[in-house]
Design a protein around this nucleic acid. Structure first.
Length: 729
DNA sequence: ACTCGCGACGAC
DNA sequence: TCGTCGCGAGTC
């Protein structure tokens, strides 16, 4: 009898799979997508069979045997194996680690993939017979059986009690899996506005693979369209995936979906315990979860019948993983939808330039929603020229006056500054020393509330000094501003009203955000100071003034996406403001958005103020085209870091030599130090690969990346490839 | 990643 | 001379 070999992905950072002999006892049972226990060197590892076993010939001495089969049925369906293979290829990441990224922790460790699914109950034949003969005094039992007469029901819809136990014992009632339960809407959907109706018609006009960019300002009612699209899918027994950029935004979406669809809505994100995540994973796979709301990693859930993907706030940078396996959940989703032949909805008020470009070239359909449901148009952004102005803790007199005006008129004010802490620098006024981070090329940020200096790049901390470390002088001055400082300044200036800060420091505790949001809605909180946390998800109907403390940093930022991000953030924050005059009745001040800047003539700001984000995007796309940057070219970044200063550049120089002969149609930059060369004790450098053709870039990476491991210079550096990098730091 | 083996140096 | 520390190689 001939022998069989099977290719197994094992969780090691190696760019290949390993072949194992299939022992006779497992013949015919081992399928692709099942987990196996295999010997690996001196260790035992859990791996995943990637292909069906194949006949083996020739010398088999090098192979060892699969030790144990851990699954009785396929854990990762064919579709997932294909997706993993594509991702490993495209992102140049070891296949075993990619497969690992698809599995929750419990399953990686080889635990059984079983989930009791008895969510539903059904009347059996003997149950129907029993019902007819049941004496009428057995009330509870009768009503239970009667309730099940029309068809299977979820347990939760039925009365609990001894009657159920009796019915199950007697075989009158049996359990059915959740996926077998019929779908019903738990609430009546609201009427659509005329504009929503038009968008709805456009959204539906499709079958099979289709990417729709649903571009609508905050409050334009995108979510309702998502819900209706999901409903369609659920009605025909399919499953839907809804991605949100952050953990913080999932509970709202889950609640909204549960309200509409009742049971069968699951969440999946890293804020959940491992057990909960495994449960959602298995429910997606069994079909028990009809809709899953999740963050980035949910794009790899093994749905049984996925028929729709929705990506909310598709422009958000958190969809790109910045560590290890650096995938973009948005791009993976597009590919997955394509392979499955299903529709994908990308929703955003401020789409990424890549997405806008795809819409322009016709790859995506663009569907616009411009009006805000029940609210006025979003206010226009106006510049507040800072030149010549005296600043108090970064705030100009005209801006403070505006805050006063809006408070007087009964409005609320939001001050946006995307920097935590009190001040980004602590300067000695006597000798010029600035408190540095010992591990990074960066300054420590002063957190006055905690009386500490904290490095925002590596997390290093120390107590805030009372004297200069260099000259011993006591004249230490905070320079620049963060949320804490703005909060302080506003509290001092407006002591009679409640001012609250919204950033990750202030909101570390669970439930705190909800409390503060309630305070905003009740009107108790009048001034909000915060970071981008305020830009996402929440609506503040009483908010009439938005002040952007500064956007200038982005204008001179070294990263080519800085201005795009600034435009998105400013637009998103601005969208929080402006109720319609009608809604809350009283004399609410008309909404205003003011942006403090030292360069009001900057073309990017001009565009943003004149035509909003769409106009800015036009300008930026033209700039990108002229500069040959994405989306008009494709990038990959080879990064290297090491504790020893010279090694990263030395490695990249060797890497460049190796790449250069194969670089057909790909431009290789010189190896250069990273923008922040030292970070967390590591010295970092990078090499940029750029090409007009994605295929050419892929071909080069495919030819070379695995061979980089073999370079002697690779020994002592940590290196990685970042395909489609989100930023160049 | 992990684990092993090999050669370098050090108190006994 | 027996230890462990640092590296290079190999993992079906």
């Amino acid at each position: 009898m001939s022998l069989e070999l099977v290719a197994v992905a094992v969780p090691v950072p190696l760019y290949k799979t390993f072949d194992y002999l299939v022992p006779a006892r497992l013949r015919g049972r081992l399928q692709p997508g099942m987990r196996v226990k295999v010997p690996f060197g001196r260790r035992q590892l859990v791996g995943v069979a990637l292909e069906a076993p194949r006949e083996a010939g020739g010398d088999l001495a090098q192979y060892r045997h699969v030790e144990e089969l851990l699954d009785e049925e396929t854990l990762l369906p064919r579709e997932m194996l294909g997706l993993a293979r594509w991702a490993a290829d495209y992102y140049r990441h070891p296949p075993g680690e990619v497969i690992w990224a698809l599995l929750p922790g419990n399953l990686r460790r080889g635990q059984p993939a079983r989930l009791p699914d008895d969510a539903g109950l059904r009347l059996t034949r003997s149950g129907s017979a029993a019902l007819a003969e049941l004496p009428s005094r057995k009330k509870a039992l009768r009503s239970l059986l009667q309730a099940l007469g029309p068809g299977p029901q979820p347990r939760s819809a039925l009365p609990r009690g001894p009657a159920l136990a009796t019915a199950l014992e007697s075989g009158w009632v049996e359990t059915v899996p959740a996926a077998a339960l019929p779908f019903t809407l738990a609430e009546t959907p609201p009427e659509l506005t005329p504009e929503q109706s038009a968008a709805w018609t456009a959204l539906q006009a499709t079958g099979g693979f289709d990417v729709a960019l649903l571009q609508g300002v905050t409050g334009s009612g995108k979510t309702e369209l998502y819900l209706r699209r999901v409903a369609e899918v659920l009605e025909r027994g399919g499953q839907a995936l809804v991605l949100a950029p952050e953990i913080g935004l999932t509970p709202q979406l889950v609640a909204r979906l549960q309200q509409r669809f009742g049971e069968g809505v699951a969440a999946f994100h890293s804020g959940m315990s491992e057990g909960e995540r495994t449960k959602s994973w298995l429910r997606a796979r069994s079909g028990a979860a009809r809709v899953v709301v999740g963050t980035r990693s949910a794009v790899f859930l093994p749905f049984a019948r996925l028929e729709l993907i929705v990506i909310d706030e598709e422009h958000d940078p958190s969809y790109k993983q910045q560590e290890g396996f650096r995938y973009s959940a948005r791009d993976v989703a597009v590919l997955r939808a394509q392979r499955l032949g299903i529709p994908l909805i990308l929703g955003s008020a401020t789409p990424a330039l890549e997405t806008l470009h795809n819409a322009r070239t016709g790859r995506y359909r663009r569907i616009e929603l411009s009006a805000r449901v029940g609210r006025g148009a979003p206010p226009q952004v106006r510049a507040l020229d800072l030149r010549g102005q005296t600043l108090q803790h970064g705030l100009s007199a005209p801006l403070l006056d505006k805050v006063q005006q809006h408070l007087d008129a009964g409005g609320q004010a939001l001050l946006f500054i995307n920097r935590r802490g009190y001040a980004p620098m602590l300067l000695c006024h006597d000798c010029g020393w600035i408190a540095p981070c010992a591990h990074c090329d960066a300054r420590m940020t002063l957190h006055r509330g905690r009386r500490r200096l904290i490095c925002h790049h590596c997390g290093a901390q120390q107590p805030a000094p009372s004297a200069c470390a260099s000259c011993g002088g006591k004249n230490l001055q905070p320079v620049g501003e963060g949320t804490e400082r703005i909060e302080d300044a506003l509290r001092n200036r407006f002591p009679m009203v409640r001012t609250e800060r919204f950033d990750s420091d202030r909101l570390a505790k669970k439930g705190e955000l909800e409390q503060l949001l309630a305070g905003i809605r009740s009107g108790d909180i009048r001034i909000l100071v915060g970071t981008q946390i305020l830009a996402k998800g929440h609506d503040f109907p009483g908010l009439s003034l938005v002040g952007i403390v500064s956007a200038d940093q982005a204008l001179y930022g070294a990263d080519f996406r800085a201005v795009e991000r600034m435009g998105q953030l400013v637009t998103q924050v601005a969208g929080r403001a402006g109720r319609s005059a009608g809604i809350q009745g009283d004399a609410a001040p008309p909404a205003e958005v003011l942006l403090q800047t030292h360069e009001p003539e900057h073309p990017a700001l001009q565009q943003l103020m004149r035509g909003g984000y769409p106009a800015l995007a036009e300008l930026l796309l033209a700039e990108r085209e002229a500069a040959g940057l994405p989306p008009y070219s494709h990038l990959a970044l080879l990064r290297a870091e090491s504790m020893e200063a010279e090694l990263p550049l030395r490695f990249l120089a060797a890497a460049r030599e190796l790449l250069a002969p194969h670089a057909d149609g790909v431009m290789l930059s010189d190896p250069v130090p990273a923008l922040m060369e030292r970070r967390g004790g590591f010295t970092r450098a990078q090499l940029l690969l750029q090409s007009g053709s994605r295929a050419a870039l892929q071909k080069l990476l495919a030819a070379c990346v695995t061979r980089l491991d073999g370079l002697p210079e690779a020994r002592k550096v940590r290196w990685s490839v970042d395909v489609d990098p989100a930023d160049l730091f």
